[in-house]
């Protein structure tokens, strides 16, 4: 229809589901990742280490967030060649990051045939106003959030999975805790709310009413919710799980530490046995040096505040 005459279909049918990959199939993979750890890797060798440690997926990157922070400059999508090599090396799902609003980077990632795209604030923004219209893609997206309103706006744009933003590359869990507590706190508030109050609440958090109501009915976000941004130890990972997340992203925490293979395995075990302090104590022993942490003072750039 589009392009064949003067009548253009509004939004290219964006808000209707495509036959080939309905929303449930997109969310389905995220559901299969629940209770797992997704690790940032920069080459095929690291991807193999992550797979051997029991990661449920890997995020293919050129630089881990800690290096992006240290080196500065514009951070973009990784070289597709690198992502292909990583995909070749492992059997677990492979994710990759696209800049916020950069839908062509997302098209390229879809063409490579990876499993998930992370529209990430860790990379430099391509569009300050708009995110990618994720309904236009067959590939599923994961997006960051700091609060419930932001999460539901991303879901309305087509995100099939949500992660907290935290503060990537700092090895400091404080922001991730703040964001998880904010989302969970708002959901608890919403659950106790009278149906009449939901309209105003939706307006207040600037989120679509139908998704707010659905969240109230489900008692949780309508998609899988992971924690990300600052996880550096097994205890951090278990903390995120006990706060109610479905799984954990670990960025710089693994491969910026003294013994990546061991730490990766410990974090995977900590996420599975998050409620068992004895196992947590056991896996936390003798992991070597953790990544160098960063205290969040005014001089540290906040990636999380880059998008709304």
């Amino acid at each position: 229809m589009a392009g064949s005459g003067v009548v253009a279909v509004y939004g290219n049918g964006a808000l209707t589901e495509t036959k080939q990959s309905p929303f449930s199939v997109k969310v389905g993979l995220a559901q299969m990742l629940r209770g797992g750890v997704i690790m940032d890797v920069v080459n095929a060798e690291q991807a193999r280490v992550a797979e051997e440690a029991g990661a449920c997926a890997v995020m293919a990157l050129e630089r881990v967030p800690a290096d992006i922070r240290a080196q500065g400059g514009v951070a973009r999508m990784s070289d597709p060649q690198l992502i292909k090599e990583i995909k070749q090396a492992v059997t677990i799902p492979v994710m990759a990051k696209a800049r916020i609003g950069h839908f062509v980077e997302a098209q390229i990632l879809e063409a490579i045939g990876i499993d998930y795209v992370d529209e990430s604030e860790v990379l430099t923004l391509a569009d300050e106003e708009n995110h990618i219209n994720k309904h236009n893609f067959r590939i599923p997206f994961v997006c960051g959030c700091r609060n419930l309103g932001e999460a539901l706006r991303r879901i309305r744009e087509g995100a099939a999975m949500i992660r907290t933003k935290g503060e990537a590359g700092t090895g400091n869990i404080i922001e991730a805790v703040r964001h998880v507590r904010s989302v969970m706190g708002d959901i608890r508030l919403l659950r106790n709310m009278d149906d009449d109050e939901v309209f105003t609440f939706a307006k207040k958090i600037a989120a679509p009413y139908d998704l707010v109501l659905q969240t109230k009915q489900l008692g949780r976000l309508p998609v899988v919710q992971f924690a990300a941004g600052g996880v550096a130890t097994p205890a951090d990972a278990a903390l995120m799980m006990q706060l109610g997340c479905d799984g954990v992203f670990v960025g710089s925490g693994v491969f910026k530490s003294g013994d990546p293979a061991r730490r990766a395995r410990a974090i995977v075990q900590a996420v599975t046995h998050y409620n068992d302090p004895e196992v947590l104590a056991e896996v936390s022993c003798g992991l070597g040096e953790a990544m160098v942490g960063l205290n969040l003072n005014e001089k540290v750039e906040r990636f999380a505040n880059r998008s709304e």
Partner: peptide
């Protein structure tokens, strides 16, 4: 369901 490699490792 899940990642069979992950589940096997654990």
């Amino acid at each position: 369901g899940g990642e069979s490699t992950t589940m096997a490792k654990l």
